[in-house]
Every structure is written in structure tokens, then in C-alpha cells.
Nucleic acid binder design. Structure first.
Lengths: 219, 219
DNA sequence: CACCTTTTGTTGAAATTTCAACATACTTTC
DNA sequence: GAAAGTATGTTGAAATTTCAACAAAAGGTG
């Protein structure tokens, strides 16, 4: 576990918890680490939510797929970020999304019931954990608001621009890299890939943005 | 405060807290009640989030409005439900939404810092409050997932049908009332009002649904 | 480096949505 | 209960998106 310490310390779930305590706590929580290859499903839709996931390396996508096979990318979690914590906290019987590794990824899984309920040996950090979890859930709520602000736009162009402006704000720079290829970006913005491609082309021609692969710049 | 006891007891924030303790706690938290007329803004976009809101009577809408004045309805909160709790917990400097009363509404406002930080006289329920808040945030996260599942659909018909099916599931009946008029439903589903109206008309003609004003039935 | 696979861009036709405008129905107010 | 205002349904034209198909580019593999 020691080699993951730097990532874990940066994870909001473990804020205000010292290094040494962190290691002991992980043990107490029964945290386990698993490696998933690219495109592997970490948690499949329909399963009960038991685990909080933490991305130690790599990255994951939270996706929904409807009857007709249309994929929608709800969110991504990258190194140091959590996923599935809301489902686990709410103890949902069947999660409505699938969690998929987008590259070879090391994932820490923590049984949420261990976080929520005080353990026998009173390791004494549950209150802090619950507080941190609450903060993280609040932050994720706000991220959803941002996503809804983007996808509530009516046209492909508006969705794309408001997404790119959000990225620029987050990166604190007009030049940034997005975590999506074209198809994935389309699935995230809920638009057609071909329409998105041509819209990117138009914005480039108009001198509003510059784009190469996953790298974008707002001019 | 006594007259609000029934509503407050049903509010997830006060779960596992007895009647008598609840009243004392409200006092300790400095909870205040305000009446807002229809269409009045309870919290305006851009203000710092300080308060957790609880709808004692009436109902509120959480809305976003872009530069061009296009309104999008993010969510509604009805009697016994909270709003703005995520922004307050995350202590955001400028909330990205406006909260508006959709009818004359009694609103309880609680300074979130009083919930998060233990008070001087150690009234002793903060841990339970924080736990409840965490649960509520998790549930709201899941509601966002549901909203995203609805609005990520590409066509007006699909958005409408998946919204109505969600309502039916929630009501546990094929017959239910939605909290929106036509324009509001359009703003919630992120579609055009006139297109929505005609789609409702088509679905009625096809015998798939029945609709009168805010009442719907899936056949 | 050649081959195969995947990703991206492009195109035009079909379908859908938006927009604007108006008619009708329903509410509210005096 | 008449008048004014608001909400809903309807329409057709314009704009946009989706769909399907293909070409070009990029990436991976032996």
C-alpha cells in the first residue's frame, strides 16, 4: 500500500488524515487494490453498489447504455478521484451505470459499509471519513450541475463551446487536453460524432478554437 | 416552529433525531423561516452559498439561465425536501443557479456552517446531522444520474417517455401528476415547448399516453 | 515497412428540432 | 361575467441534427 500513499493523500476522502493513520485505516477498512486492463468493466450496471472506488492510476469512465445500445458517458474519474461513492452511500440495489477502465488502471475498492459504520476496534477516524465523504459528494453534486449546464444547451456548437470553456476554466489556461477522443466527447455531450467533428472543423476555420486530437485551445 | 414538526420529521436531514431534540437543535442551528410569494427568488445566481434550504410548504425550482436568457430547469424541491445543500456544504462562492418559489412557499433556511462545525454548547447531534447530510447528498447524486439519463436522449419523444416512465416508477402507478406546466417541462427536458406539445399530441393519438394538463397516464 | 485496425473528417439525404406566428383554451382580475 | 392575460396546441418554413457511407489519417502489430 505504501506505494500508493502519494495518490491517496491527494484523494479528498483522506483529507486531514496523517500518513501513518492512513495506512492503518486502509487495513481496518479492508481496502483492496485491483488492476484492470483497458476496456475492462470494473463495476457492471445492475449490480448492487457496495464499494467506493478510488483511481490509483489510469482512469475510468462512468457510462450508461440504453436498450438500443446508445452509450452516454456520464463522467470520468482520473487519478486520485473517487467513483461510485454516491451509489455505495445510498446503498442502491442496482447501479444504473457501468464503470469502465479507459486504460490499464489500478483501482482501490473500499467496502462502503466499513466506512459508514464504526468498526469493532474503534480506529477512530470514521467521523473524519464521513465528513470527507460528505464534502466529496457535495463537490460531485456541483460537477453534475456543470455537466447539466453543458448538455442542456440545444446545439452541438453551444454544447461544445460551453464544455471547452469549462475545461479552460478548470485548467486555468486557454490551452488544455480533454480526456475524450471524438466519439467519447460526442457521447459525453450527447450529440452525433460526425456532427461534432464538422462543428470542430467549422470553429477551427472561423479561428475560434484550435484542436489537434485531444488537445484544444480557445483563441 | 412546532407547526412545522411533521414536515421536518419527514425531512431526511433530521432522520434519527427525536421531536424534542429537533426543536432544541433548530434553535441551536439558528434556523429561520421565511415566506416567499410565487415567482420570488429565494437565492439568486452568483451569491455565495451559505444556507441549506428546506421546503416547509409550497415548492421551488432550481434554474439556470444563460447569456441569451434561455432557462433550464435543473430540478424541483417539494415539501420536506432540501435544496442548495450541496453548494452550502462545498461553500461555493457564487452559486450557478437561482432558486425560485413556484407558489407561495414557506422556506426554512439553516446556516450550513452551523451544521458542519460543532457549536459551543455541544448540542451533540452534529455527527448525526452530518451523516444525514451525507446520505441526502448521495441520494441527490443519484437523482442527477436519473436526470442525465433522461436528458441524454436525443429526441423529444425519447426524453419525454423516459421522464414519464421515471415519474410512473416514482409514483408506483401509471397515473401521476408532474410538477411542471408545458413550458417548464420543456425547460426541464431541454427541448422546445411547441415540439413537446406536438409530441404529446402524437403520443396521445397513438394511444401510448393520456395527458390532461399536469396529469399523465401511461397506457 | 507493410498490413490491419481504429479514429477522424466529409458528404448528402432524411428526419427532427427550432422558430415564429397565430388560434384556441383556460385563468385571473376587476 | 367581460376583459385581459397566460398557457397550450398547431402549423409550415428554416435550420440543425442524425444517419449511413466512405475516404483519409493515425496507430498498432508482426
Amino acid at each position: 500500500m505504501e506505494k500508493y500513499l502519494d495518490v491517496l493523500k491527494a484523494c479528498p476522502l483522506f483529507e486531514e488524515i496523517g500518513d501513518e493513520n492512513l495506512l492503518r485505516m486502509l487495513n481496518c477498512l479492508g481496502a483492496k487494490v485491483q488492476l484492470f486492463d483497458k476496456k475492462y468493466t470494473i463495476i457492471a450496471e445492475g449490480n448492487p453498489a457496495k464499494f467506493i472506488g478510488i483511481v490509483l492510476s489510469g482512469s475510468v469512465q462512468i457510462t450508461q447504455t440504453d436498450f438500443f445500445g446508445n452509450r452516454s458517458i456520464v463522467a470520468v474519474s482520473q487519478q486520485g478521484e473517487m467513483f461510485s461513492e454516491a451509489f455505495a452511500c445510498a446503498e442502491v440495489k442496482a447501479i444504473p451505470v457501468s464503470i469502465i477502465a479507459t486504460e490499464p488502471s489500478e483501482i482501490m475498492l473500499i467496502d462502503c459499509s466499513h466506512v459508514l459504520h464504526t468498526c469493532a476496534n474503534h480506529c477512530g477516524f470514521h467521523q473524519q471519513l464521513i465528513f470527507n465523504l460528505m464534502k466529496s459528494l457535495a463537490v460531485k453534486n456541483i460537477l453534475f450541475h456543470q455537466k447539466i449546464e453543458v448538455t442542456s444547451k440545444r446545439s452541438t456548437r453551444e454544447k461544445l463551446m460551453s464544455y471547452l470553456m469549462l475545461c479552460a476554466k478548470k485548467a486555468d489556461s486557454n490551452s488544455f487536453t480533454i480526456p475524450f477522443d471524438r466519439q467519447e466527447l460526442a457521447d459525453y455531450l450527447c450529440v452525433e460524432r460526425s456532427g461534432l467533428s464538422s462543428e470542430i472543423g467549422k470553429l477551427k476555420k472561423e479561428g475560434i478554437i484550435d484542436a489537434h486530437k485531444k488537445h484544444f485551445e480557445i483563441l
